[in-house]
Design a protein around this nucleic acid. Structure first.
Lengths: 172, 172
DNA sequence: GCGACTATCTATAAGCA
DNA sequence: TTGCTTATAGATAGTCG
């Protein structure tokens, strides 16, 4: 039958420069962010790498991805409560029971805060200077825990396949 | 002229699962990591987003990408390098195969930057001192973490049931 | 291990539901 | 925003040098 064909322009080539149209930019952001996370996921699975990604949309919202922090998500899901892992005063309150999966969360949060602080305009040299002294902890985190997490992550992947929907990664 | 053309197999479809061949995995890691960073770069440019990516190869080496954020800002400030910055092994890691520890190291650096940022006074000292005594992340992960993981694992079954009716099971 | 080269596979820009 | 669809741009697996 000769029905009216859909005249799709198909994918057009675009120049890699800021998309001016507010609308299109937002759409592209969402799509490409998803694509980026997917790529990261594949990289992790294929090569056994560990990846953490933090993305700040121009609007200020932040999105993060971490292949080994899926556990955090699961944890959150199971508890079903919007527990507040974020402390107003970092490094100060008791946070017993913290584990590797919290580390990622913490990391994200700190990065987030850093970003916020930075936007305020700062003295970068001090940053560099401050980053000089570290390793004052040498946490006793062992590979065993990581290994377990890896297995769990694998389970999650399998789970995703079994579910028809396309899951998000870690959205903040 | 009709010369013998190269019989390339072209790109083959591959399943997203760990690549067992050590060699191939390494090659894929390099290629895809580059691709991932490129994608991130485009996302930043096209949408004016800010992105930070940290990747740990299974070998323990770390790679990072940053656009308008984190250490990139520092480096750009200090060396006047281009905005997109990719470098292998950011920190002097003389320790190998310790992914989690690497993450911690990265975390520490960022944390330090943050501290330097919001410091401005004695707050830093206070925070650091407190953390030294508390070390929330240094909790008995060896045991507690694993125990929690066991719990998580046990909850997997339930998760499967719930996820069947929840389209967004991984949202934070 | 790093590039180069293809043949393919995959991600997506547009447009519309 | 979230999802389809189509046509095409872009990424890359398998091979060589």
């Amino acid at each position: 039958m000769v029905s009216k064909r859909k005249p799709s322009m198909g994918r057009q080539k675009i120049e890699i420069k800021r998309i001016e149209k507010e609308d299109a930019r937002q759409v592209t952001f969402s799509k490409r962010r998803a694509g980026l996370f997917k790529k990261a996921s594949e990289l992790c699975i294929l090569c056994g790498a560990e990846t953490a990604i933090i993305v700040f949309s121009p609007a200020g919202k932040s999105f993060s991805f971490g292949h080994q922090s899926v556990e955090t998500v699961v944890d959150r899901f199971l508890s079903g409560s919007p527990q507040n892992y974020v402390r107003p005063t970092p490094l100060n309150d008791s946070h017993r029971g913290a584990s590797v999966r919290d580390l990622n969360k913490q990391y994200t949060e700190v990065l987030n805060q850093l970003e916020a602080e930075k936007k305020r305009g700062v003295e970068l040299e001090k940053m560099r200077k401050a980053s000089r002294n570290q390793l004052w902890w040498e946490s006793p985190i062992n590979e065993l825990g990581l290994r377990e997490l890896e297995q769990l992550r694998a389970s999650m992947e399998e789970l995703k396949k079994n579910v028809a929907v396309t899951p998000r990664f870690s959205e903040l």
